[in-house]
Amino acid sequence: NKASVVANQLIPINTALTLIMMKAEVVTPMGIPAEEIPKLVGMQVNRAVPLGTTLMPDKVKNYE
């Protein structure tokens, strides 16, 4: 099972992601793969992401 990116804290809307905000966890359904964490640093979320929520591609601005 592959790990996904999960919010390590509440991430407010329009916040630029940092390493400390994210952790890798095996979750269902799968979100953004954990190996993409370095790519996500500096990207902004387009909505608030509660603690423990899986980061889905549609929650990150300009994620492809």
Rank of each mutant, 00 (worst) to 15 (best):
N46F: 08
A7K: 06
D58C: 12
P38E: 10
V27K: 06
L55S: 02
Y63L: 04
P57V: 04
T15R: 05
T28W: 14
V49W: 06
N8R: 14
G52K: 01
A34R: 04
G31N: 02
L40W: 01
N1K: 13
L40I: 07
E36H: 11
P50S: 08
T18M: 08
M43S: 04
A24Q: 06
R47V: 15
Q44G: 05
A16M: 12
V6E: 00
V60P: 02
M43Y: 10
P50T: 08
I20P: 12
E35L: 11
K23I: 10
V5D: 00
P12I: 07
V26T: 10
I37H: 00
I11T: 03
V27L: 03
L55C: 07
P57N: 00
T15L: 06
P38A: 09
E35Q: 11
A34C: 09
A3D: 04
P33R: 09
R47H: 13
T18S: 10
L17Y: 01
K61T: 11
L10N: 15
A16E: 11
K59P: 01
T28K: 11
L19F: 12
P29R: 03
V60L: 12
E36I: 07
M22T: 01
E35K: 11
N14L: 09
V41E: 03
R47K: 13
V26A: 07
K39F: 13
I37D: 00
A48E: 14
L17V: 00
L51H: 13
A48T: 15
E64N: 14
P29W: 08
L51G: 09
N8K: 11
P50K: 08
E64G: 14
T18C: 08
L40K: 02
A48W: 10
T53E: 15
T53D: 14
I32P: 01
M43W: 02
A7P: 01
N8G: 10
Q9N: 04
R47S: 15
A3K: 11
M21L: 04
N46S: 11
P57K: 06
M21Y: 05
M22F: 07
M22I: 07
Q9G: 03
D58P: 02
L17F: 06
A3Q: 10
L40M: 04
V41R: 04
P29D: 05
K61D: 08
V49T: 06
N1L: 15
K23T: 09
V49Q: 06
M56C: 10
M22H: 00
V45N: 00
V49M: 09
V6Y: 05
L51A: 15
V26F: 13
Y63C: 05
T53K: 08
K61L: 11
V5C: 07
V45C: 05
K61M: 12
L55R: 03
A16I: 14
T28M: 13
N62E: 09
I37T: 01
I20F: 12
Y63Q: 01
L17S: 00
V6K: 02
D58T: 06
I11H: 01
E64P: 13
A34T: 01
M56K: 02
I13L: 09
I32Q: 00
E64M: 14
V26R: 11
E25S: 11
A24P: 10
T15Y: 07
A24Y: 06
L51T: 11
N8A: 15
I32H: 03
V45T: 09
Y63H: 02
V45H: 00
I11N: 04
V49L: 10
L17E: 00
A24E: 07
A34M: 06
L55M: 05
A16N: 11
K2P: 12
V49P: 05
I37Y: 00
K23W: 08
V45R: 02
L51C: 14
M30N: 11
V6D: 02
T53H: 13
T28C: 15
G52V: 02
T53M: 13
N62M: 09
G52E: 01
V26K: 10
M21E: 01
E25T: 09
L10T: 13
T18Y: 03
V41S: 00
N14M: 08
P50F: 08
I20M: 14
L55Y: 00
L55W: 03
V49S: 02
T28Y: 14
A48S: 12
P33C: 12
G42Q: 03
G31S: 04
N1W: 15
P50Q: 10
P38G: 09
K23H: 06
A48R: 11
A24S: 12
G52R: 02
V27P: 01
P38C: 13
L55I: 13
A3H: 09
M56Q: 09
M43D: 00
G31C: 06
K2C: 15
V49E: 05
A16S: 12
N62Y: 11
D58H: 11
K39C: 15
T54A: 07
G52T: 01
M21N: 10
A16W: 13
S4E: 00
I13Q: 11
T15V: 10
D58I: 05
K39Q: 11
G42W: 06
N1Y: 14
D58E: 10
A48Q: 13
Q44L: 11
P29K: 04
V6T: 05
K59Q: 15
N8D: 07
A48P: 12
L40H: 00
E36A: 10
I32A: 02
R47P: 06
G52Q: 00
I13F: 07
N46W: 12
M30H: 12
P12E: 09
T54Q: 01
N46P: 02
G42K: 02
L55E: 02
K2T: 12
K23Y: 08
N62H: 11
V60D: 00
N1F: 14
A34D: 03
T18W: 06
K61H: 11
S4Y: 04
A3S: 09
T54M: 05
M22C: 07
P50V: 06
M56E: 05
A3T: 06
L10M: 14
V27E: 00
A48N: 13
R47I: 15
E25D: 11
G42Y: 04
M56Y: 09
N46Y: 09
E35M: 11
I20V: 13
I20W: 11
M30D: 06
S4Q: 03
L19P: 08
T15F: 07
P29A: 05
P12C: 09
P50D: 08
P38L: 10
T18N: 03
L10I: 07
I20N: 12
N1Q: 14
L19G: 02
V60R: 02
T18Q: 10
T28R: 11
N62L: 08
P29E: 04
P38F: 10
L17R: 00
T54D: 04
N46K: 11
P57I: 04
A7I: 05
L55T: 01
L40N: 01
A24F: 06
V27N: 00
K59E: 15
A3G: 10
T28V: 12
T15W: 08
L17P: 00
V27S: 03
Q44H: 11
I37R: 01
L10H: 15
N1S: 13
